[in-house]
Design a protein around this nucleic acid. Structure first.
Lengths: 205, 205
DNA sequence: ACCTGAACACCGTTCAAGT
DNA sequence: ACCTGAACACCGTTCAAGT
């Protein structure tokens, strides 16, 4: 049953994207190769190229596909709490799918889903009284903080082999004392606390 | 002369790191391979492994090496302007060396230089009256915002081939109107404006 | 229209060997 | 101590061919 379903699934872009996302979530983006995805789908590597331009595009498609899980935005709601709510969702998405955070930090998100989400956030801000330039400034500032905080948290939660290779063991006292605090700084509450402060830095004219 | 100098330079970690940084700055981190670095040094790929553990460590060493260019911190200066000054330097370093920004976003910086810089920033903050937890919170928030903003700026300044592959041409009116504003949002002034607002969100108790 | 097979030009790294 | 050479198990992608 299940076997038949997965085997007989006609090869198309979505099937390829989903298989790639499974690999990325389980083993990291580095393990996503055209050959590996093909093997997972019991197909020749070159079969993928009929549905997808290449690895670069596949990775972009993975990101946009994942963004579909973001909640809808109420453009009529209070801008500050709505932004807080939405960027927390962003953060959770990135933490759940490290590959998406990685792609987001490397390239502008310009797929259909990313575009739609961006539109809604800008509508929310302009409806709240922000001018065009200010709306973009708020959006980008929150986006940057969120991406940075997500990458920070991910970098502290990965297995030790992925950490810096040449750790100095003769760390000075203050860093020893604060070392665990830096790990705590990756917790969601710390992200939310900072997010609120960033939002509070902006007001409609 | 020059030829002799570069050819006769004894192979050691620093020489390897410098060669790798040149490649990274000119062609991107993806072009940095052990084989390519070796070729640039007119040496066998395996010769590198005598001085460096592997590619992972080389990349980590590249990041820490670059951080040496950061300015010294005056721990007795006003904490807010000093932080602003230093994170602007961070931002400029990331923009000048995209590979360093990339590595920084992927792994915790735990090399000797990174550790020293971190110590100084924490000393600055504790000297200003912040408690341990608050000092780390301010540090990490600013760090995350800066890394995110740097990656944002880099992602908008890369050649078009590196941009998202499947751009939708039927973008809605509002995104067309704001599209160039998103590019402008990557400018340094916009980064500094946001940085000031984030800093303003914190005060010593 | 959709997929396969063979091939090309790459990777990082291990292992044994040279000097 | 420092480097080379050959080999292994991988990559992404092109190109011609099958059905």
């Amino acid at each position: 049953m299940r076997k038949t379903a997965s085997r007989s699934a006609a090869l198309d872009a979505d099937v390829i994207i989903e298989a790639a996302l499974v690999i990325a979530d389980e083993e990291g983006l580095d393990s996503v190769s055209m050959r590996r995805v093909a093997a997972e789908l019991a197909v020749t590597p070159m079969a993928l190229y009929y549905h997808v331009e290449g690895k670069e595009q596949l990775v972009d498609l993975m990101a946009d596909y994942s963004l579909r899980a973001l909640p809808e935005i109420d453009v009529a709601a209070a801008w500050d709490t709505e932004l807080e709510r939405h960027f927390i969702a962003f953060h959770r998405l990135f933490v759940a799918h490290p590959a998406v955070a990685e792609v987001t930090s490397r390239r502008p998100l310009e797929g259909p889903t990313a575009t739609r989400v961006g539109e809604q956030i800008l509508q929310l801000l302009t409806a709240a009284g922000f001018g065009d330039a200010e709306a973009v400034a708020v959006f980008v500032a929150l986006f940057n903080y969120t991406v940075g905080a997500s990458l920070y948290r991910l970098s502290r939660h990965r297995p030790l082999e992925h950490r810096l290779a040449n750790v100095t063991d003769e760390a000075t006292p203050i860093s020893r004392r604060l070392r665990d605090r830096f790990v705590v700084a990756g917790a969601e509450e710390q992200f939310v606390d900072g997010l609120r402060r960033v939002i509070a830095g902006y007001r409609p004219r």
